[in-house]
Structure formats: structure tokens, C-alpha cells
């Protein structure tokens, strides 16, 4: 990809902020690792060699009977019986962490939550599930939720802000009053009411938080458009006969982009916090989902097992710090007041 000069300068300035630059790489590698969660933490083996044939249990469901077992259902690779069947005529390649986020370790030395050991590196939660596996999956779902929410709320927010700022007058006044009323809605209560009607899943939660969270960028974009619509070059474009939509998105939006892009990492951080707090309160993702908020809640309920709270806190805190550091570097990169 070839960047134009301005973007090259920006990338340069972004790199000049060493903390933000390394944060970006660290965050990206953590995110990529978590995207590959199925390969890293899985109770199904990655590869099975059985009777000179290869099987990929983490991708494909194989019935136990295929390995000479008795049941027609999917093989349980954690079962000693199945393991023996396979190792007799082949071998098993396990994932580095042989637990998925739902896997219950029945074979714990102490009652759950059990402390860190060489099997469960960060111990297990109160249902005997591996904390590391839940952190990896929880990190992934948090970041994905944050990204989706940031993406959609930016699109809606920018469009709403652009229309209000560009047309001004009555549209602006009505829009602003609507936003004031709308942002006063008690989101949490609506979620509680809603969760008594439907079982909120990922998309439900995304939809609802989006419904009440798209206002973040409206203010800044609206302000930029209010300013921008009186610029001489906007008048000049109108004098050329350019249409409203084209003026909004080609001529004014690029000016609002700097302010918006600067906000994005912080919106992302905020979105992740929203999901975590909903999960913490028990109004978030369905029971059993891997979630940092739920782990925090468990930590609070099991103060005798500090590895729960500490791990969840550590992951959440470092994720948010990384995002803030990246945000600072992005702000530096887009700051027009820094000389070129």
C-alpha cells in the first residue's frame, strides 16, 4: 500500500511516539493470538493420527465410533478411554492449553476454584473452567464487541453529526434536543427489562448499546461541520454546482476526520468497558460465555481465590492502557498543530 505524503508524515509521527507504537504492536499481537483462540486453547486436539490417517478434531466433528469407541456422538478427547483408543494406533497433538472456555476440569486437586497449577496455569474458576482459556476467549469477544460497536456507532454518529452541522437551523435544533433526551435514557434499566423478555446474545447487546451509544461522535462532527460549512472552499464548491452530499462527504468530512479518528481508540476502550460492566452486573452475555466482566464478578464472589480477580483485572487494565497509549499516539499523528 502506498501512502500519500501526508499519511506518511502521520505514520512517522505515530512511530515517533514510541510508547504508542509498541502498544499498537503488542495490542495487535494479543488480538491476533486471541483470534486464533481455537488453536491455542481447545479441549479438542489439533491433530490426530489414527490408523495412518490424519484427523482434525478442532475443525471437524468425529464420532467416537470412528476411533473404535461405542457411542455415535462426538468423541470426548479428554476421556481416558478415547485417548487410549487413539494412542494405541496413532498419536494426539493437543492445543498448548488443552481447555476450551467451557471445558470443566473434573480432575482438580482441590475444590473449584482451584489455585494455579501446571495444568491450569492461572487456576480455575468456581465451575472448574480454566482461567487462561477463558481470558483468551474473553479478550477476543471484548475486543470484537468493542470494534463492532466503535465501527457502527462512528458511522451513525458521523452521519448524524454531519447532517445536523451542515444543514443547521431547524434540523440541528431538533437533532440536538433529540440527542439530549435520548442520551438521558437509562440504558441499564432498559437492558434489565429487555433481558427479562429475550436472552440477550452478542448481537442483541451490540444493538442495544449501539442504540444508546451512537452519540459519542455527533458533537465533534457537528461542530466541525458547523465550522466547515462556512469555509470559502465550501462556498467555492457550491458555486461550481457541487451537490450537498458531495460537499458534505468530500469537502467537509476530511476536516472532521482528524477529530473523529483521534476519538476512536477512546471509544473502543469505552465500548469494552461497557460490555465488561454489563457482564459484571450479570446483564451481559449469556451464561457460560467467556467474559472478563463475569470473571471479575467471580473474583468478587470468591475473595479467597485472588487469581480470578487479579487475572481479569490485569488483562482488562493492560488492554485499556494499551488502547489509551495507542490513542495518544494517534492524536499526536493527526495533530495539525505539530509542524510538518
Amino acid at each position: 500500500m502506498k501512502l500519500n505524503r501526508l499519511n506518511q508524515e502521520r505514520w512517522h509521527k505515530f512511530k515517533a511516539n514510541r510508547r504508542g507504537y509498541w502498544s499498537l504492536w503488542l495490542f495487535l499481537s494479543l488480538f491476533i493470538v486471541s483470534l486464533l483462540a481455537e488453536v491455542i486453547a481447545n479441549d479438542k486436539p489439533l491433530l490426530v493420527r489414527f490408523q495412518s490417517e490424519f484427523y482434525f478434531p478442532f475443525l471437524v466433528e468425529y464420532a467416537e465410533t470412528e476411533f473404535g469407541g461405542e457411542f455415535e456422538m462426538e468423541a470426548d478427547y479428554r476421556d481416558e478411554f478415547v485417548r487410549e483408543l487413539i494412542t494405541e494406533k496413532g498419536w494426539i497433538l493437543e492445543a498448548p492449553i488443552p481447555f476450551s472456555y467451557t471445558t470443566i476440569n473434573h480432575d482438580l486437586p482441590s475444590p473449584a476454584p482451584s489455585p494455579p497449577s501446571d495444568v491450569n496455569w492461572l487456576g480455575t474458576d468456581d465451575k472448574g473452567r480454566d482461567v487462561v482459556a477463558r481470558l483468551i476467549y474473553g479478550f477476543r469477544i471484548s475486543v470484537l464487541f468493542g470494534l463492532f460497536l466503535t465501527f457502527f456507532s462512528s458511522i451513525i454518529g458521523i452521519a448524524a453529526g454531519a447532517v445536523q452541522g451542515y444543514y443547521g437551523g431547524r434540523i440541528d435544533i431538533l437533532g440536538q434536543r433529540f440527542i439530549e433526551v435520548w442520551s438521558g435514557m437509562p440504558t441499564l434499566f432498559l437492558l434489565i427489562i429487555l433481558s427479562s423478555v429475550v436472552q440477550p446474545n452478542f448481537w442483541w447487546l451490540l444493538g442495544i448499546t449501539l442504540l444508546f451509544g451512537w452519540m459519542a461522535l455527533v458533537g465533534v462532527v457537528r461542530a466541525e461541520f458547523l465550522r466547515g460549512r462556512n469555509f470559502a472552499y465550501v462556498l467555492a464548491a457550491k458555486a461550481l454546482g457541487v451537490g450537498d452530499r458531495q460537499i458534505m462527504f468530500r469537502h467537509i468530512l476530511p476536516n472532521a476526520m482528524v477529530a473523529s479518528v483521534t476519538f476512536l481508540p477512546f471509544i473502543l476502550g469505552g465500548s469494552i468497558t461497557t460490555l465488561t460492566s454489563l457482564d459484571f452486573l450479570g446483564f451481559g452475555l449469556p451464561v457460560g460465555s467467556p467474559s472478563l466482566g463475569e470473571l471479575l464478578a467471580q473474583g468478587k464472589a470468591n475473595l479467597q481465590a485472588p487469581w480470578l480477580g487479579i487475572s481479569a483485572f490485569f488483562i482488562l487494565a493492560s488492554m485499556l492502557s494499551l488502547l489509551v497509549f495507542i490513542g495518544e499516539a494517534v492524536r499526536d499523528a493527526f495533530d495539525p498543530r505539530k509542524s510538518y
Binding site: A232, Y233, L235, A236, K238, A239, L240, G241, V242, H251
Partner: peptide
């Protein structure tokens, strides 16, 4: 009509270009 039949240039060339 704008730009096609009647065109306009502005006072400030500094600000009239995007």
C-alpha cells in the same frame, strides 16, 4: 447553472481551495 454557465472566483485564494 452554477459552474457551468455562471462561475465564481473568490477573494481569498488561501481559503477557497480545499
Amino acid at each position: 447553472i452554477r459552474g457551468n454557465r455562471i462561475s465564481m472566483i473568490f477573494q481569498e485564494p488561501m481559503t477557497a481551495l480545499n
